[in-house]
Nucleic acid binder design. Sequence first.
DNA 1: GTCTATAACCGGATAGAC
DNA 2: GTCTATCCGGTTATAGAC
Lengths: 206, 206
Amino acid sequence: MAIKGIKERILDAAVKEFLARGFGGARMQSIADKAEINKALLHYHYNNKQKLYEEVLQDQIARLIASLFDLIDSEGDFDEWLMALIRKYLREILKSPGFSRFILWELNSGQKFMPALFKQVLQQKGKEGNFVLQIVERRLAAGYKACDPVQFLLNVLSLCIYPVLAQPILVQVLGADVFQNPDFALRREEEIFNFVKYGISGYKEA
Amino acid sequence: MAIKGIKERILDAAVKEFLARGFGGARMQSIADKAEINKALLHYHYNNKQKLYEEVLQDQIARLIASLFDLIDSEGDFDEWLMALIRKYLREILKSPGFSRFILWELNSGQKFMPALFKQVLQQKGKEGNFVLQIVERRLAAGYKACDPVQFLLNVLSLCIYPVLAQPILVQVLGADVFQNPDFALRREEEIFNFVKYGISGYKEA
DNA sequence: GTCTATAACCGGATAGAC
DNA sequence: GTCTATCCGGTTATAGAC
């Protein structure tokens, strides 16, 4: 079909609205406007706000987790694995900067729904919650036995996600929008890899 | 005064509510309840929600920025400076885990107010926006000239903030609440310092 | 300054015509 | 399926007694 179905238009609009404002802040009217229909029709297709929200979230989280599991399980030696991990993860984040922000916010909003959904999607993938950790452990066993996998994973994730997340703060504190630079992401990929692999001792003068 | 003034009680309550739910999600009724007064009295002391919000934010942001500027300007050699930076920052974050989450969320909520406030507080401190960057630059000049200060700062901030921010996600993905361990913060301080200083090459087997 | 009661408004949801 | 008009609960804000 060349023209988007109405359900698809609604979902697209809903994703934008929910990611931007969260469940509480999102307005059905605004979603209807974005989808270029009226509220009544919106309610006709998705009974209520909660239903629509769950639909959107299910999609988004499944997409995220699938992507993460694929990449963390990649082939190659340690360096290749690490670089692939960083690159794919960073790009995933940059594809939708609002998404991590949204997850981080909503997960703390006292809603039981989101954690439950996380667990459910993880299990749908037929893998244990600590599956990710086991892969990292195995990888580190080849050369970096003394490195705690939890700390390692925290470090890599932090370096990838936080700068994207904090972009608006950085603009203020640094006094310049580093993200304006189109190849900032590429430089950041390299930076993270080098930083993780060698730390700043790699920069040390002779 | 031994007993808290009512304005102070209101502000305390408002901080909790706003940090937990954001501006849109916060309820004046809930703030009144927390302060153990009724809505009318709340409106008597702070004309409207926006006013109260601005008051709260002004305090919070000023406190944060003051703290950051103090610590990043500390004495000692490079290692001492780095460790002080990490320790103070991590503790600041842990003191109020909801705060960074709140800032990150609200800064993107399309409100003009928050970025403006940031800029204003920065200028009140009588320092340029890139003041922070200059300190880092000077520090790195002593031994790590090739290290980009922006990337360096991003790395340190990421490692400190993100794990605290993402705690609820980590619980799901890792399958265990690493933060349950009471001295996790201490171990994390050491980990970040070592990671930044030597990178994982420090772990490498002989 | 502090309260109760209520106005004014907004947003989610529904009724019912077409 | 799609629309207009409306209901109803919840939230901010105010009026007015004490």
